[in-house]
Amino acid sequence: GPIITTQVTIPKDLAGSIIGKGGQRIKQIRHESGASIKIDEPLEGSEDRIITITGTQDQIQNAQYLLQNSVKQY
């Protein structure tokens, strides 16, 4: 399918649970989903961080599912 980009906003407090120790968790999510995932640095004074996910519809759905699971375990 076509490559698309979607953005998800997360509270910055949850960023740690998604990134994992030394970036292990986010690497695993990238690997498992096949999507490209970029977590922006939090904006000055903002409570949120923006996650940019790029890939096919399937890859993005996979990545979103894995991201949600990471947050739930936290």
Rank of each mutant, 00 (worst) to 15 (best):
G23K: 11
T5W: 00
R30D: 10
I4Q: 01
I3D: 11
L14D: 15
P2Y: 04
T56H: 12
G20S: 12
G22R: 14
Q59F: 00
S36Y: 05
L43V: 13
I51H: 01
E47M: 12
G22T: 14
A35R: 00
G34R: 07
I4H: 07
I4C: 06
A15R: 02
T56N: 11
D40M: 05
T54S: 13
S70I: 13
N62R: 13
P42N: 09
G22S: 14
I29R: 01
E47D: 05
I10L: 15
I37S: 00
G16E: 13
K12F: 08
H31R: 10
Y74C: 14
I37P: 00
T54D: 09
Q64G: 01
R25P: 14
G23H: 08
Q68S: 12
G34D: 02
L67C: 02
D48P: 04
P2R: 10
S70N: 13
L14M: 13
I39C: 10
E47S: 05
S46E: 10
K12V: 08
K72R: 11
T56P: 02
G45I: 04
D48M: 07
K27M: 15
G16R: 11
E32D: 08
D48H: 09
I19W: 13
A63D: 00
L67R: 00
N69G: 14
Q73H: 09
L67I: 15
G45A: 07
D48F: 04
V71W: 05
D40S: 06
T9R: 05
Y74E: 15
S36P: 00
S17A: 13
T52P: 00
I39H: 08
A63Q: 00
I50E: 15
I51R: 00
I60S: 03
L66Q: 13
V71P: 04
V8L: 04
K12P: 15
L43F: 03
K72A: 14
I60D: 00
I53C: 03
A15K: 03
G23M: 12
N62F: 03
S17T: 05
E44Q: 08
S33F: 01
V8R: 04
D58A: 09
A35G: 03
T9W: 01
T9S: 11
I50R: 06
K38G: 12
T6W: 00
R30Q: 11
T54M: 07
S36I: 13
P11D: 09
S33H: 01
I39G: 02
P2L: 11
G1T: 10
N62A: 12
I37W: 01
K12S: 11
I29V: 06
I18K: 03
S17C: 03
S46V: 09
I37K: 00
N62S: 09
Q64A: 02
A35I: 01
K27I: 11
S33W: 01
L66E: 09
I37D: 00
S46G: 06
P42R: 08
I50F: 11
I29D: 01
I4W: 00
D40R: 04
I60A: 06
I4N: 14
A35D: 00
K72I: 01
Q64V: 02
E41W: 03
G23F: 07
I18Q: 06
T6K: 15
Q59V: 10
E32G: 12
Q68P: 09
I10E: 04
L67E: 01
G22K: 12
G23E: 07
L67A: 01
K38T: 07
I37F: 06
T9M: 07
Y74P: 15
L14A: 13
I29T: 05
P42Q: 09
I39S: 09
T56D: 11
I18E: 06
T6V: 01
I51G: 03
S17R: 10
L14W: 04
S36K: 15
G16W: 09
T6A: 03
N69D: 13
E47K: 05
G45V: 07
L67G: 00
T5P: 02
I4A: 02
G1A: 03
I39L: 10
S17G: 09
R49S: 11
D58T: 06
R49E: 05
H31S: 12
G23D: 14
H31N: 11
I26P: 03
I29L: 10
Y65P: 05
D40C: 11
I29H: 03
E41A: 08
G23C: 13
A63M: 01
G1P: 02
S70C: 13
T5G: 00
K72S: 12
I53P: 00
V8M: 14
I26M: 15
V71H: 03
R25M: 15
G23W: 07
E47A: 08
I29C: 09
E47F: 05
I53M: 07
K21V: 09
E32P: 01
A63E: 00
A15I: 02
S33T: 11
I10N: 01
T54E: 14
G1H: 01
G55W: 00
K72P: 15
L14V: 12
K21W: 03
G1K: 08
Q68A: 08
T54G: 08
G22V: 05
S70A: 13
R49T: 13
G16K: 09
Q64C: 02
Q59W: 00
P2Q: 15
K27D: 15
R30Y: 14
Q73G: 15
Q24D: 15
L43Y: 03
V71E: 14
T9Q: 09
L14T: 10
T6Q: 12
S36L: 14
Q24G: 09
G1F: 02
D58L: 12
G55A: 01
I37T: 02
Y74K: 02
S70R: 11
T52F: 15
Q68G: 09
E32Y: 02
V8D: 15
P2V: 12
I50K: 07
R49W: 05
Q7G: 05
E41H: 14
I51C: 14
I4D: 10
A15C: 02
L43M: 11
I53K: 00
G55M: 00
L66P: 01
I50C: 13
R49V: 13
Q24V: 10
Q24R: 14
T52H: 13
G22E: 14
Y74F: 15
Q61P: 01
Q68D: 13
K21E: 10
G20E: 12
I3W: 01
L66M: 13
I29G: 02
K38E: 12
I29Q: 02
I60R: 02
G55P: 00
Q7M: 02
I26Q: 05
Q24P: 11
E44A: 10
K72L: 03
E41R: 07
